[in-house]
Amino acid sequence: MTFIATPVIASEEEKYITSSEFWPAISLSEFRNIMRLDGTVTDERLKHATCSSILQVNNELKEWRITHQTNGHNNLVSIPAEQINNQSEYLLLYQRAVFCFAKANLIERYNDYDSTAKGIKDNEELHDTTTSLRRDGRIAIRDILGVNHVTVELI
């Protein structure tokens, strides 16, 4: 067993990814801390995965956003919601969806580095992790929309 130190990201300034004025900016350092990402993920990869995730989540919530904007809510946190630690539940759910989809995207790209038998085995183990992250992102979106987590149809 060998120990390989991974670099710690020391950011001079806080970096955010922004989208429309309705949605909150996403802090890349908060994303790194919450999702336990170290310096092996470069800022460029992190930005790319986060932007892609924001696009996906914003697209899935587009009609919901338009409805709330029509009702006079100019941003996500202005919508009446339960507060957890003085933060809107919608804000927390939005961040969770973005973070989960972005980390799943990053994990799926890690097998680019190693195509050996060990790399293939590790990729199979990571598949469960990416599936769980995508599920958690879907649940967060469905919670924002106020719909059930499971849809069942009889054939």
Rank of each mutant, 00 (worst) to 15 (best):
M1S: 04
A5R: 10
T6R: 10
I9T: 13
S11F: 04
E12Y: 15
I17M: 11
T18E: 09
S19A: 11
E21K: 10
F22T: 01
W23Q: 04
P24M: 05
I26N: 00
I26V: 15
S27C: 08
L28H: 03
E30N: 14
N33K: 05
M35P: 12
R36H: 03
G39S: 11
G39N: 14
V41K: 01
V41P: 00
T42N: 06
E44C: 05
E44D: 03
L46A: 03
I54T: 03
Q56I: 09
Q56C: 15
N59W: 12
L61M: 07
L61S: 00
K62N: 04
K62C: 08
E63W: 04
W64S: 06
W64N: 02
W64M: 12
I66C: 11
T67E: 04
N71Q: 15
N74Q: 15
N75L: 04
L76Q: 01
V77W: 06
S78P: 01
S78Q: 09
I79D: 00
A81S: 06
E82M: 11
Q83C: 13
S88A: 12
Y90M: 01
L91K: 10
L91T: 10
L93G: 00
R96L: 13
R96G: 04
A97D: 00
V98G: 01
F99S: 01
C100L: 03
L106D: 00
L106K: 01
L106F: 11
I107M: 09
E108G: 14
Y113I: 10
D114C: 08
A117E: 11
K118T: 10
K121D: 12
N123I: 03
E124M: 15
E124K: 07
E125P: 02
L126V: 13
H127A: 08
D128H: 15
S132I: 11
S132H: 13
R135T: 05
I139G: 02
A140G: 04
G146I: 12
V147S: 15
N148T: 12
H149D: 07
V152W: 07
E153V: 11
L154H: 08
I155D: 10
